[in-house]
Design a protein around this nucleic acid. Structure first.
Lengths: 260, 260
DNA sequence: GCTCCTTGTTGCACCTGCCGCAACGGCGTG
DNA sequence: CACGCCGTTGCGGCAGGTGCAACAAGGAGC
């Protein structure tokens, strides 16, 4: 909507990847050198970026402060953290927490294992809807109009040989998720990584987030991960309960409960 | 420089304080409601803010991700962290690390103690130059032209009865710092908090940062804090060494060393 | 049921303030 | 010494940000 703010945000993403020179940023943004400079100056004033000793621009100190505050505002993250850490300790794999954020699904937290390869995901990033386990775990339990809206215009780009590349196949995958209760990513984004994921529900019984266990196929294949679903179920049930969710009794499994 | 980016940064600060409504933000910015909305939408698109369940706007998840990356770019912080944590464990008070960042001094890291009152400082925030211990510890060892530039237009606002309110007194304070090797904040900003601070030097023997120990007067007065200066000296010397600083031999204590 | 309030959204006209350009100076490197 | 890179400044043009008004939708309160 607002061009210059959009550009400023792009600058943040650029210098987050690695500190960059003013000329490089101007080139990547496709704007004149002086324009990039003015943007950078404003951002530096605000402490969001900073000029480093080597002359390149990097992220600013203020970001760390804002993030500290932000973490306090993330009720979900705060609530889920202990459960995620426990899961991480017990399964020894990378754990992700992703949540619905408007019409997108974003990574909200991540537990990494010491010595493990870093995965592509970053906190705050949008999840690739048609490949990630967490997105399937969430989408499978959304009303169809929500799914429709979120997938509108979505490109089913092939990243590996197992990527789901069309809507009908994806719908079948969601149906499978609903049936068995968990979602999988069978090396659909990176051919060396796979994962299992399960949904998290809130007090209104809506699925608002999902937790996944990701591993390198070399260290644990899908079959091994499936063996971890009981552990994962325990984790997601715990988080859901902390969010105020109440396990449905047999009589409340019908749609009548919607009337509270 | 760039108005809309400046506003966007203000928005970030506003919602960092607490989640706010669109109308509130518009009022604080002094702009029309629709303008504020457009700014917010752009920021939300970038993940820097987000619309919360209660309709108010808060900080976005992407900030947490950016901050993770940012922390990796902060060499000083990375290097100093272990020493600060150790100091925190040993003195049981709040520990600050502040650094020169262009023509400002900003908090770079902070060790809080469980159960302690939260202090005003936030990572990334500019230090109040005439009251903070860290700023005196840094300014006392800067070339006079740098001090001049940084204090240009600075207001010596009184925050408590002990605040230094004019330049000559401040210069005398800096001289005292040079003499005894550490700086103090005698309840100059908040009447219930005081601190001691010492400088950190880099490989070129320049003072680039400072570490402070802050406490509530009720829990430890200035006299008690002064007793901690040996511990503080150990910490700053350790960080300085990690930055490549070499303790000066007796013959290099004269100004000749400036010629390297 | 009703109203009142807040918010999201859209269209439009105005004009601010951002953009691109060019030129100069400083600094470090080859 | 030349060259490249960067910061800075002034200026004209115009894109795009801004303010305004009007409407719809949702919620709270009565």
């Amino acid at each position: 909507m607002s061009q210059s703010i959009q550009r400023a945000a792009e600058v943040l993403e650029l210098v987050a990847q690695e500190p960059r020179t003013q000329a490089e940023i101007a080139a990547r943004l496709g704007v004149h050198r002086s324009t990039a400079l003015r943007t950078l100056q404003t951002l530096c004033d605000a402490g969001l970026t900073r000029r480093r000793a080597d002359g390149r621009y990097g992220l600013g100190y203020r970001l760390a402060g804002l993030a500290n505050v932000a973490a306090e505002q993330f009720d979900l993250r705060e609530i889920a953290r202990p459960a995620l850490e426990r899961l991480g300790r017990e399964c020894r794999h990378t754990v992700h927490l992703a949540a619905l954020d408007g019409d997108a699904i974003v990574y909200v937290d991540k537990i990494e294992q010491p010595g493990m390869v870093r995965l592509y995901s970053q906190i705050g990033q949008r999840v690739v809807l048609h490949t990630a386990g967490v997105s399937k775990a969430i989408l499978a339990f959304q009303p169809s109009d929500v799914v429709e809206r979120m997938l509108q215009g979505h490109e089913f780009t092939a990243h590996t040989t197992t990527t789901i590349t069309n809507r009908p196949d994806f719908d079948r995958a969601l149906a499978a998720v609903r049936e068995r209760g968990w979602a999988e990513d069978d090396a659909e984004y990176e051919d060396f990584a796979n994962c299992v994921a399960m949904p998290v529900r809130d007090a209104g019984d809506s699925v608002v987030a999902a937790v996944s266990i990701t591993s390198l196929r070399a260290s644990a294949d899908l079959g091994t991960l499936r063996g971890l679903t009981p552990l994962l179920a325990e984790t997601t049930a715990g988080i859901s309960r902390d969010l105020g969710w109440r396990p449905a009794g047999p009589e409340t499994t019908d749609p009548q409960e919607a009337y509270r």
